[in-house]
Amino acid sequence: MCLSIPSKVVEIDTERNVAIVDTMGVTREAGLELMEEGDVKIGDYVLLHIGFIMNKIDEEDALESLKVYNEILEKLDEEERRELVQEDDNCPNRGA
């Protein structure tokens, strides 16, 4: 019940106080009752829960996390490459 997939705001209907959002290609409506007026804008990433927007996703922070994950991957790759090269001296092109 609590698993919520991130969504992107594509339209805002101020009259009905709802946002139209795109969730992985599916268009849905979500109530804005829990958000301060004017806080949610078109293009924002938000988290939905049972028909309401419960918060905005902090883009900068999400990007920061993804950057850290990339670095982990790169570091991992580098280490693995080094291991491979060490293991396999006969084939210097490996892991290039």
Binding site: I5, P6, S7, K8, D22, M24, Y45, I57, E59, A62, L63, S65, L66, K67, Y69, N70, I72, L73, K75, L76
Partner: peptide, 21 residues
């Protein structure tokens, strides 16, 4: 990665290689 895509918010946090990392 300049701009955040909806896909990144989903896939980026499920990436099996990152989990392994």
């Amino acid at each position: 990665m300049a701009e955040l895509q909806l896909k990144d918010l989903y896939d980026g946090f499920r990436n099996p290689e990152v989990i392994q990392g």
